[in-house]
């Protein structure tokens, strides 16, 4: 450890720190598996994410040395986590509220759906398939006509919203 004097501070953690953190991670893994077999409704997800975050924190602080290194690295790391959280939460404001305007129903996406077609051309401005033989025509605004009750499924799939097809009046109000 002669080199340690050359550093501002020694970064060598005692062996038992690594072993204890490793043991804690293994125990938490078994706990999260055990809890998943207990029915807690929506709290299963909450508990699983809390345990996962505790494990991730242990890894970051001890294995990745964030607890001992310059705070700059922690700041870089935290900025990325904040960006991801912002990205997901802001997108959820959209995706969770779409049903407020349109009635939504799930319909099967079959292998012949437009989204799987190699030949379908997409209108990138509207995120929708352009008309092709056998497809319902689009109007000038690039909006898919309302699906018919007897219509073939898969043909009018809105590619921006895979797995959902909008029905009823108010179609195209974007």
């Amino acid at each position: 450890m002669a080199h340690a004097t050359a550093h501002k501070k020694p970064h060598v953690l005692p062996l038992k720190v690594y072993l204890r953190v490793g043991a804690a991670l293994l125990v938490l893994t078994l706990v999260t598996v055990a809890v998943s077999f207990v029915h807690l409704g929506p709290y299963n997800l909450v508990v699983a994410m809390l345990i996962a975050s505790l494990k991730a924190t242990l890894v970051a602080l001890f294995f990745m040395h964030l607890l001992y290194d310059s705070k700059l690295y922690f700041l870089v790391f935290a900025s990325a986590l904040g960006t991801i959280a912002l990205f997901i939460v802001l997108t959820l404001f959209d995706t969770l509220r779409r049903g407020d305007i349109y009635e939504e129903v799930s319909r099967p996406i079959t292998p012949d759906a437009v989204i799987y077609s190699d030949t379908a051309r997409f209108d990138t401005a509207h995120g929708q398939a352009l008309p092709e033989e056998g497809l319902m025509p689009l109007d000038t605004a690039g909006i898919v006509s309302p699906p018919l009750d007897t219509g073939e499924i898969g043909e009018q799939v809105d590619t921006s919203d895979i797995g959902r097809i909008r029905t009823g009046p108010g179609e195209g109000g974007r």
Binding site: V33, A48, M49, A52, K55, A56, V59, F63
Partner: peptide
Amino acid sequence: DMIWIYLFPLLYLV
């Protein structure tokens, strides 16, 4: 490892 720590419960458990 950290990414798997999240993937495991999200995919396998809940």
